[in-house]
Nucleic acid binder design. Structure first.
Length: 544
RNA sequence: GCGGGUGUAGCUCAAUGGUAGAGCAUCGGCUUCCCAAGCCGAGUACGAGGGUUCGAUUCCCUUCACCCGCUCCA
């Protein structure tokens, strides 16, 4: 399947539109259309039911170390700016960047360094991305080249001071960029904010600066104490949240896969440090199973454990659940969800202040006055176990999923083409969405076979009856084959057809989207049959 | 952010420095007892802004969006 075909289907049938399309669109933002909104709602609902409302805290699920509690939360998009300073997002997402006009490369302002060197009456700053001894050797070699000197003339260069950061320099006209032969090719440092910035209050000033959240997770951490104090939860327990997050991606691309406004489904699971590994394993496997259960059964879905050197500074283990999206080169996968063992990094950061790794330890990062670079809340976020009399900072397992990415993966997986004989028996190509019935925007369509002989009236009664309980669709326009085809493209798993026999014996025809199988059901049994079919899910694994 | 490519109807594609066309889809009507049939009718487009020109969808510039490659990707 080509991505363009899926994009065309999404537009044609009303799953996804470009945001603000009549004004030419806006890069990195997407709207869900009439069918898309139902699909995404179902994805969210499936996740929330799986994690929160459907969870039974009385029994340990298969594979879980113990029973556990689960609760939900909904936090604001704008939070106290200190949240992002302590979480590390401010420093990480808030860089000054320098572009090179000649090499076309971009550097982080604070990650370029170099040395001042003088030869004759010319003084030049030789810049490099290398560090330490490598930086010394690199700057020397490039200085010789720049002044067109031989290696034996190295003594003619007079170096001034040690390797220093580019941030110490105001005027870049005498700077030799890391990958070029000429001076002054670097642009002035420009603020490159991966977090969306806004201003609180009518008067815009830096003291009112705030950020749209780049992840929902911090809301759970800063509310950890509130949840403990108000809901009688005991460790182990989880807090789940679904909500919008925002990142100023440099290159939004690949349809909704990398959007600047996106929705996350995140859960923070708090447990005793000694049990954290077992819980990590549990959530890693459980979350993978969720995608399988909802129909991502092809080899396009995979779980990938991160290598040690790929782990975030705070993480003791991370696995990505990935999907081989059609817009990626063969063999490459895109992240749907990350399941991370975050240790006690987050709660401690909000207690003590922003942490950095020092050897095997996490310590509070200090500024030049040896004070905490970003102060924490100072609030006690430890947990006291009144059975064991133990007080500790819980460890956290975080399954963080992208709702839009999951929705896109379900659409990609569902996209199917097969051959179906038309009215004359000639095979004709059919496009349909093989969505899991729980995810399908419409659960069924009610169709009178022809619009006469009282069939529409009967069909409307069937429709009105089922509509109270199910999201279904009524259609009496056009030939029956055309109406089936429309529902196939919308991913509707079942069609309920009122025909001549209905008028005789009060039965209707059920028609299955994937197999085209038909069977008869009493009108009074339609709701039961529909429920059973939705619960049963997909019958066969997807081909191709 | 850089380089290359592409923007014409809901979709897929034509043509043209001088009134923009098709297929499919959509809507209305007729017909139709099971998979986009048939007949009649209808609506809808040159991404945006500027320039050259008597006249620009066409040529030029700018911009926006999408695709490919680089860069980036908690």
């Amino acid at each position: 399947m080509e991505m363009e075909q899926l994009v065309a289907l999404c537009k044609r049938r009303g799953f996804l539109f470009q945001s603000s399309e009549i004004y030419g669109g806006i890069n990195g933002f997407w709207d869900y259309g009439p069918l898309g909104v139902e699909l995404k709602r179902n994805v969210r609902e499936a996740w929330w039911h799986e994690m929160v409302t459907g969870h039974n805290e009385l029994v340990a699920p298969p594979g879980a170390p113990s029973a556990y509690q689960m609760t939900g939360l909904e936090c604001t998009i704008i939070m106290h700016p200190q949240v992002w300073k302590c979480s590390g997002h401010y420093d990480l997402f808030h860089d000054y960047m320098v572009d090179c006009r000649a090499s076309k490369r971009r550097y982080r302002h604070d990650q370029v360094q170099g040395r001042w060197v003088k030869y004759g009456d010319q003084q030049v700053f030789v810049a490099t991305e290398l560090l330490g001894d490598e930086a010394v050797a690199e700057t020397e070699a490039r200085a010789l080249k720049f002044f067109k000197l031989r290696n034996k003339d190295a003594g003619k260069l007079s170096w001034e001071g040690d390797v220093v950061s580019l941030t110490t320099i105001d005027d870049f006209s005498q700077v030799l960029g890391p990958d070029v032969k000429d001076l002054g090719t670097l642009t002035a440092p420009r603020e490159f904010n991966l977090m969306f910035k806004t201003y609180i209050g009518a008067l815009a000033g830096e003291e009112g600066a705030a950020f749209l959240r780049p992840e929902t997770a911090q809301g759970m951490f800063v509310n950890f104490k509130n949840v403990c104090d108000s809901s009688r939860v005991k460790i182990p327990f989880g807090i789940a949240q679904i909500g919008k997050s925002f990142r100023n991606e440099i290159t939004p691309r690949n349809f909704t896969f990398r959007s600047r406004e996106f929705e996350q489904m995140e859960m923070e699971f708090f447990c005793h440090p000694d049990q954290s590994r077992a819980w990590y394993q549990y959530w890693r496997d459980r979350r993978y199973q969720w995608y399988l259960d909802l129909g991502l059964t092809s080899e396009r879905l995979q779980m990938r454990d991160h290598d040690a050197n790929e782990l975030s500074h705070y993480s003791c283990g991370t696995a990505d659940i990935e999907y081989g999206f059609p817009f990626l080169p063969p063999g490459e996968f895109g992240e749907l969800e990350g399941v991370a063992h975050r240790g006690d990094f987050d709660l401690r950061s909000h207690m003590e202040g922003k942490l950095v790794r020092q050897g095997d330890e996490l310590v509070v990062q200090k500024d030049e006055h040896d004070k905490p670079k970003y102060r924490g809340s100072g609030k006690d976020l430890t947990f006291f176990d009144d059975q064991t009399r133990e007080r500790y900072v819980p460890h956290v397992i975080e399954p963080a999923a992208g709702a839009d990415r999951a929705t896109l993966a379900f659409l990609c997986e569902a996209y199917q083409v097969d051959q179906v004989p038309d009215a004359k028996g000639v095979p004709r190509e059919r496009l349909y969405l093989r969505l899991h019935p729980r995810l399908a925007p419409m659960k069924a369509a009610v169709l009178p076979l022809v619009s006469k002989e009282g069939m529409p009236e009967v069909a409307q009664r069937v429709y009105s009856d089922l509509k109270r309980e199910f999201n279904i669709f009524y259609d009496e326009k056009g030939a029956i084959g055309r109406r089936y085809a429309r529902q196939d493209e919308a991913g509707t798993p079942l069609c309920i057809t009122v025909d001549g026999q209905t008028l005789a014996d009060d039965t209707v025809t059920f028609r299955d989207r994937d197999t085209l199988r038909q069977w008869r059901v009493k009108i009074d049994d339609c709701a039961v049959e529909l429920s059973a079919r939705i619960r049963a899910g997909l019958e066969q694994p997807a081909e191709s």
